[in-house]
Measured scan of single mutants.
Amino acid sequence: MGFKLLSKLLVYLTASIMAIASPLAFSVDSSGEYPTVSEIPVGEVRLYQIADGVWSHIATQSFDGAVYPSNGLIVRDGDELLLIDTAWGAKNTAALLAEIEKQIGLPVTRAVSTHFHDDRVGGVDVLRAAGVATYASPSTRRLAEVEGNEIPTHSLEGLSSSGDAVRFGPVELFYPGAAHSTDNLIVYVPSASVLYGGCAIYELSRTSAGNVADADLAEWPTSIERIQQHYPEAQFVIPGHGLPGGLDLLKHTTNVVKAHTNRSVVE
């Protein structure tokens, strides 16, 4: 069995187990497998329904001669939608809004960016022009300005110390501490036991640490421990890039980060 097929099978099995364990909360999309990078042309966006009122959005972007996937989250909030992270750029984010209108038909009224990198804030200006209120932590807003990236308009308070959590509509926002970046936030959907790890969490097929220019490698494993301790009931975990899975993604990420750190020390 090929690795790609095995990865998709694991996603399907995880979703099936969740649907059985929580039949009222989960209505997993039966329309197909989780979209992969090879299936999404740059400039297009796919939506994948995880649970009743919960979707991931998947886009792709060219970077350094390669094409990478990027995940975000959409959560229903009454007759409105909360968006977590842009679709990595203005063109993708405009396509995301169009796809949401086509498939869901509810307005996106608020959006949260989970850290300051372009795959999370690139497209904020498109959201703002569409009347979406954009939010991020003060740290993310400051770092985005320093980096020359787009800056969300509103500040999220109460997320300055490791372990801080605040309720934001249908989700809980959690600051686990520094990891992929010093400002990275985690998003949890309690009604569906869905954990969105953003770039602080890796997919299972990833074996290298990737972009760690703004990471705190020493603190990252401790931050992941905080996530595990705060959300032990999480059933569906979405990484910032690639295929979702279960809580095993947290341990896998820790292993990859520690291996990278150990290699760096040896070198």
Score class of each variant (00 low, 15 high):
residue 259 A to V: 06
residue 196 Y to I: 03
residue 254 T to V: 10
residue 23 P to L: 13
residue 23 P to S: 11
residue 91 K to P: 07
residue 176 P to H: 00
residue 247 L to M: 04
residue 231 Y to Q: 02
residue 104 I to T: 05
residue 252 H to R: 11
residue 38 S to V: 09
residue 2 G to Q: 07
residue 200 A to D: 08
residue 226 R to V: 12
residue 223 S to A: 03
residue 107 P to G: 10
residue 64 D to L: 14
residue 195 L to T: 07
residue 182 T to P: 05
residue 38 S to H: 06
residue 124 V to L: 11
residue 69 P to T: 05
residue 221 P to C: 14
residue 51 A to F: 13
residue 227 I to D: 00
residue 89 G to I: 02
residue 219 E to F: 15
residue 84 I to S: 11
residue 84 I to Y: 03
residue 114 T to P: 00
residue 141 R to M: 14
residue 159 L to W: 05
residue 22 S to Y: 15
residue 165 A to V: 08
residue 216 D to S: 10
residue 79 D to V: 08
residue 153 T to P: 06
residue 13 L to C: 13
residue 168 F to W: 06
residue 179 A to M: 03
residue 155 S to C: 14
residue 183 D to C: 00
residue 243 L to A: 06
residue 29 D to W: 06
residue 252 H to W: 08
residue 113 S to G: 11
residue 39 E to N: 03
residue 249 L to D: 02
residue 215 A to Q: 11
residue 192 A to H: 04
residue 98 A to S: 09
residue 91 K to H: 15
residue 52 D to F: 02
residue 130 A to M: 13
residue 86 T to R: 01
residue 91 K to L: 07
residue 50 I to V: 08
residue 244 P to M: 06
residue 204 L to K: 11
residue 260 H to D: 05
residue 160 S to I: 05
residue 210 G to N: 15
residue 126 V to Y: 15
residue 212 V to T: 10
residue 4 K to R: 06
residue 42 V to T: 09
residue 46 R to V: 14
residue 124 V to I: 15
residue 40 I to S: 09
residue 205 S to C: 07
residue 138 P to W: 15
residue 233 E to M: 05
residue 33 E to Y: 03
residue 252 H to V: 07
residue 57 H to L: 03
residue 130 A to G: 13
residue 116 F to I: 02
residue 189 V to R: 01
residue 209 A to D: 07
residue 100 I to D: 00
residue 225 E to H: 15
residue 101 E to M: 06
residue 143 L to K: 15
residue 255 N to Y: 15
residue 2 G to E: 13
residue 96 L to V: 12
residue 39 E to C: 11
residue 206 R to M: 04
residue 125 D to A: 09
residue 202 Y to P: 06
residue 154 H to M: 10
residue 91 K to E: 12
residue 219 E to G: 09
residue 33 E to G: 08
residue 23 P to K: 12
residue 143 L to H: 09
residue 230 H to M: 11
residue 22 S to R: 08
residue 240 G to Q: 01
residue 205 S to N: 03
residue 235 Q to F: 02
residue 95 A to S: 07
residue 97 L to H: 02
residue 222 T to W: 05
residue 159 L to M: 07
residue 261 T to R: 08
residue 37 V to D: 08
residue 161 S to C: 06
residue 176 P to I: 09
residue 264 S to G: 14
residue 140 T to Y: 02
residue 51 A to H: 03
residue 218 A to P: 09
residue 172 E to I: 06
residue 215 A to T: 09
residue 64 D to W: 12
residue 68 Y to R: 10
residue 112 V to Q: 01
residue 152 P to G: 12
residue 180 H to A: 00
residue 181 S to K: 00
residue 242 G to Y: 01
residue 95 A to L: 06
residue 134 T to S: 10
residue 188 Y to Q: 09
residue 38 S to R: 08
residue 23 P to A: 11
residue 89 G to Y: 09
residue 194 V to A: 07
residue 225 E to R: 11
residue 102 K to Y: 10
residue 153 T to C: 14
residue 135 Y to S: 07
residue 42 V to F: 15
residue 80 E to H: 04
residue 27 S to T: 09
residue 199 C to A: 01
residue 226 R to H: 14
residue 96 L to A: 11
residue 264 S to E: 03
residue 239 P to K: 01
residue 249 L to H: 07
residue 136 A to V: 10
residue 222 T to F: 09
residue 58 I to E: 05
residue 169 G to D: 07
residue 114 T to H: 00
residue 157 E to I: 11
residue 178 A to K: 09
residue 174 F to G: 02
residue 176 P to R: 00
residue 173 L to G: 00
residue 41 P to L: 04
residue 179 A to C: 03
residue 210 G to T: 04
residue 19 A to D: 15
residue 89 G to W: 02
residue 4 K to S: 13
residue 167 R to L: 04
residue 193 S to I: 04
residue 199 C to Q: 00
residue 7 S to F: 15
residue 210 G to K: 11
residue 93 T to L: 02
residue 50 I to K: 10
residue 73 L to Q: 06
residue 18 M to G: 06
residue 111 A to E: 14
residue 103 Q to I: 04
residue 65 G to A: 10
residue 71 N to W: 02
residue 181 S to C: 09
residue 95 A to N: 15
residue 95 A to I: 09
residue 70 S to K: 03
residue 78 G to V: 08
residue 37 V to W: 09
residue 94 A to T: 05
residue 148 G to E: 07
residue 160 S to L: 08
residue 12 Y to F: 05
residue 134 T to G: 04
residue 110 R to D: 03
residue 51 A to D: 12
residue 105 G to A: 13
residue 223 S to P: 04
residue 64 D to E: 03
residue 224 I to N: 13
residue 238 I to H: 15
residue 209 A to M: 11
residue 29 D to Y: 07
residue 147 E to T: 11
residue 199 C to W: 00
residue 123 G to R: 01
residue 113 S to T: 08
residue 264 S to H: 11
residue 185 L to S: 03
residue 46 R to W: 09
residue 180 H to D: 00
residue 252 H to S: 08
residue 266 V to C: 07
residue 67 V to Y: 03
residue 107 P to H: 15
residue 18 M to S: 07
residue 71 N to V: 11
residue 45 V to M: 15
residue 250 L to N: 03
residue 71 N to Y: 01
residue 194 V to S: 08
residue 43 G to W: 08
residue 258 K to R: 12
residue 46 R to M: 08
residue 76 R to K: 13
residue 4 K to D: 12
residue 17 I to E: 03
residue 155 S to A: 09
residue 78 G to A: 11
residue 190 P to C: 00
residue 31 S to I: 02
residue 250 L to S: 05
residue 152 P to K: 11
residue 169 G to S: 03
residue 152 P to I: 12
residue 87 A to F: 00
residue 228 Q to W: 11
residue 192 A to T: 08
residue 229 Q to T: 02
residue 16 S to D: 08
residue 118 D to E: 06
residue 206 R to V: 09
residue 2 G to W: 09
residue 17 I to P: 03
residue 1 M to A: 10
residue 140 T to K: 02
residue 42 V to D: 11
residue 81 L to Q: 02
residue 259 A to I: 07
residue 260 H to P: 07
residue 34 Y to D: 06
residue 100 I to Y: 01
residue 63 F to C: 09
residue 70 S to G: 10
residue 202 Y to I: 08
residue 9 L to H: 03
residue 241 H to S: 01
residue 40 I to R: 06
residue 194 V to R: 01
residue 236 F to Q: 15
residue 206 R to C: 13
residue 177 G to P: 00
residue 153 T to H: 02
residue 121 V to E: 01
residue 265 V to D: 08
residue 226 R to E: 15
residue 232 P to N: 02
residue 59 A to Q: 03
residue 95 A to W: 03
residue 185 L to M: 11
residue 151 I to N: 04
residue 10 L to K: 05
residue 125 D to Q: 07
residue 69 P to V: 06
residue 3 F to Y: 05
residue 130 A to H: 15
residue 97 L to Y: 02
residue 89 G to L: 10
residue 9 L to G: 09
residue 96 L to Q: 11
residue 137 S to M: 07
residue 176 P to C: 12
residue 254 T to R: 10
residue 42 V to E: 10
residue 216 D to Y: 09
residue 72 G to K: 00
residue 20 I to K: 13
residue 128 R to S: 12
residue 22 S to M: 10
residue 225 E to P: 02
residue 145 E to V: 07
residue 123 G to Y: 01
residue 150 E to D: 14
residue 15 A to Q: 15
residue 58 I to R: 07
residue 12 Y to N: 05
residue 244 P to Y: 15
residue 36 T to K: 11
residue 73 L to P: 01
residue 88 W to K: 01
residue 258 K to S: 13
residue 110 R to E: 04
residue 213 A to F: 13
residue 30 S to N: 14
residue 190 P to K: 01
residue 198 G to E: 03
residue 63 F to N: 04
residue 252 H to F: 15
residue 198 G to T: 02
residue 133 A to M: 11
residue 75 V to F: 04
residue 6 L to N: 03
residue 123 G to Q: 00
residue 135 Y to P: 00
residue 196 Y to N: 02
residue 245 G to Q: 09
residue 207 T to Q: 03
residue 145 E to K: 15
residue 77 D to W: 13
residue 49 Q to S: 12
residue 7 S to E: 10
residue 224 I to S: 05
residue 79 D to Q: 04
residue 9 L to I: 07
residue 23 P to N: 12
